[in-house]
Amino acid sequence: MPQLVTSLLLAGLLVAPALAAKAQKAPAETEAVKQTVTAFFDGMRRGDSTLIRRTLAPGAVFHGIGGRPGQPPALQTENINGFLKAVATPHPQILDERITFEQILIDANLASVWAPYEFYIGSKFSHCGYDSFQLVKLADGWKIAHVIDTRRKEKCK
């Protein structure tokens, strides 16, 4: 039994530095991922398609899961250039998607963000749901490769 305890202690001493190094890196990477997603929504609020475009990876894809009441959900692919044009078109009211970073997972150059949101046009509530972002770390930092979201008007937080 003492040999088992000694082996476990030795294993713990060998693993601890690796875990400490990972723990030190994780907060910085998590913040960088958050900054990319935050910049995306700042660009949307400002109507700044250039700011949004800087957050996107080449070939990024946008999907939405929606549908009409009483019908099955449908997967909708959103045209990114159409989205950027719509955002950059002057609006009398701010398009404001308010998210909460519920979970961020990172492995090497891949990050996943799970975030509930509420969408407002000006101060008027429009809809809510969850955003799921997939980001990749490229030479110039974290970029959004895929966004998929749910959209509803009821059962919001």
Rank of each mutant, 00 (worst) to 15 (best):
Ala16Asp: 08
Arg151Leu: 03
Lys22Ile: 01
Tyr130Thr: 13
Ala139Tyr: 02
Ser49Gln: 10
Val87Trp: 05
Ile80Asn: 05
Arg45Pro: 10
Phe83Pro: 14
Leu95Arg: 14
Cys156Trp: 04
Lys155Phe: 07
Ile144Val: 15
Leu4Met: 12
Glu97Met: 06
Thr100Gly: 05
Asn109Cys: 01
Met44Ser: 06
Gln103Cys: 00
Arg98Pro: 13
Pro69Lys: 02
Ile144Tyr: 01
Val136Asp: 08
Ala115Glu: 10
Asp48Ile: 03
Ser123Cys: 00
Ala115Lys: 07
Thr30Ser: 14
Asp131Ile: 01
Arg53Glu: 11
Gly59Glu: 05
Ser123Asn: 13
Phe101Leu: 07
Tyr130Trp: 08
Lys25Trp: 06
Pro2Ser: 05
Gly82Val: 04
Lys34Phe: 00
Arg98Ile: 03
Ala26Trp: 02
Gly67Thr: 03
Phe101Asp: 10
Thr100Ala: 08
Glu102Tyr: 00
Thr30Glu: 15
Lys155Ala: 14
Phe101Gly: 09
Phe83Trp: 05
Ala145Asp: 08
Gln103Met: 01
Ser126Arg: 10
Leu105Ala: 11
Asp140Thr: 10
Pro90Gln: 07
Ala21Ile: 09
Gln93Asn: 15
Thr30Gln: 15
Thr36Leu: 07
Ile80Arg: 06
Ile104Pro: 05
Arg98Tyr: 04
Phe125Trp: 05
Val61Gln: 14
Leu51Arg: 11
Leu14Asp: 05
Leu14Trp: 07
Gln93Val: 14
Leu14Ile: 13
Leu110His: 06
Ala18Asn: 09
Ser132Leu: 11
Met1Pro: 15
Asp48Arg: 07
Ala74Cys: 01
Gly66Leu: 04
Ala139Arg: 07
Pro73Asp: 03
Lys137Ser: 05
Ser132Thr: 13
Arg46Trp: 06
Gln134Asn: 09
Leu14Cys: 11
Thr36Ala: 15
Ile104Trp: 01
Leu10Ile: 07
Ser126Glu: 13
Pro58Gln: 07
